[in-house]
Design a protein around this nucleic acid. Structure first.
Lengths: 129, 129
DNA sequence: CAGTATCCTTTCCGATACTG
DNA sequence: CAGTATCGGAAAGGATACTG
């Protein structure tokens, strides 16, 4: 159980600092421009480097490479080299990566479901300023 | 089940480009170093500027200010000035912000629940390299 | 207290050229 | 095809000093 619910704040531990740090750390790790987009793309099935690049929507090779390396490091994707004449490299989600899709979809769905409210808030703020 | 399409890709729209863009856009908006941490802190109740700063864990005033401004803009938090001798400013989640807590907690809980798997993957990768 | 203004360092990230 | 190497501009973000 995560608890982190503040509704019952313990005296000493404000909410369990180390857990919060771990979460913050992991959040920081996925909070970059491409990670979630890549995970979502691979969620629809394995893809080769160039196909993935097209799918994600104009990301430089450099960034896609480093994003994929990080995902590999976290155990979210596998990298499989198929030694053909021009080499092929296929990227796919691991079980862990696939599991991760669930909470990510949770955010994505929430965003879509609440887009009206968000847009309204933004419009209101813009008008207020 | 989340489905997240792909299982039935429409001919023209690969997964609905504009929706994906909207999600990516919103994801980008919250994918910064402090936003999710602040939302989580405020999820436990309203806080004043300095208290929030302590809670989040050493963030510069500049960054906390800009993070809060963005959250205000998106309609996730309110800013209430209480005109006392030294002014007090209280930040609190709106209904929208509170709702947003749900998917965010989803990620946080997933991270905590799977920390063992993640750490194992990272250790394995480190050893492999 | 709750910021704003300014400066300055660090990191991000795209463009380009090259390689097995 | 699937990268790596290098460069440079842009943006993020911290430190400090100052203000109502």
């Amino acid at each position: 159980m995560v608890d982190q619910e503040g509704t019952s704040p313990k005296p000493g531990a404000r909410v369990d600092t180390s857990t919060c740090e771990y979460i913050g750390d992991m959040l920081a790790r996925i909070s970059d421009k491409w990670t979630l987009l890549v995970v979502r793309s691979l969620g629809r099935g394995p893809l080769r480097f160039s196909a993935l690049r097209r799918e994600v929507g104009e990301v430089s090779k450099k960034m896609l490479t480093s994003t994929l390396r990080e995902l590999e490091e976290n155990g979210f994707v596998t990298r499989t080299v198929i030694p053909t004449r021009p080499p092929q490299v296929e990227y796919a989600l691991t079980d862990l990566g696939h599991d991760f899709l669930t909470p990510v979809q949770g955010i994505a769905e929430w965003v879509v479901k609440n887009s009206t409210r968000i847009d309204a808030a933004r419009a209101s703020y813009a008008g207020r300023v």
